[in-house]
Amino acid sequence: MKGLRWAVAVAAVVVALVVQVSLFPHLAWHGIVPNLCLLVVVAAALTVEAPFALVLGFVAGLTLDLAPPADHVAGRWALALTIAAFLAARVRQDQKPSAMAVVGTVAAASFVATSLFALSGIVLDDPGTSVVGLLEVVLVAVVWDVLLTPFVLPPLMRLFARLSPQWATT
């Protein structure tokens, strides 16, 4: 069961990443696209046990760092998504999260992850980081992620819940 769950989670991350870099640039607003990998990680964090979600966050981040169009310092998305997964796992409650709770968690996780990535860029002295530009990117990214939540999160959460009945919070 555990192996199957890992396979499904990794497949979801791969599909999310490919769609994010190959399909969404056609719909992007000033080059800002929804972070589907983050949505997969949040869905896992809201449904299954926290260690799994944390490791999935790290793996998804590392994939974002290494997959082709990326050219930034590797490890930055891994850090951002691990911490986003940690925060989302903290929000989890014993009853099934309400729709508002899911949207709120996605917005918070998106804000934290994109900001952490941007801040790590400032620490690493990446040129071309103006605060106004960063704010625009972070806010538009949050809007994108929240817009896609109703389409992506419910099926993924149902899938993760079915694959891990002992943790399911139906």
Partner: peptide, 25 residues
């Protein structure tokens, strides 16, 4: 009690990320 916050794992993964960043830089 049911879903213990995995702080040690969080620290381990954050350190792993920072190690990657350092290696790459």
């Amino acid at each position: 009690s049911r879903n213990r916050p995995p702080r040690s794992l969080l620290v381990a993964l954050v350190l792993a990320s920072i190690t990657l960043v350092t290696l790459d830089v």
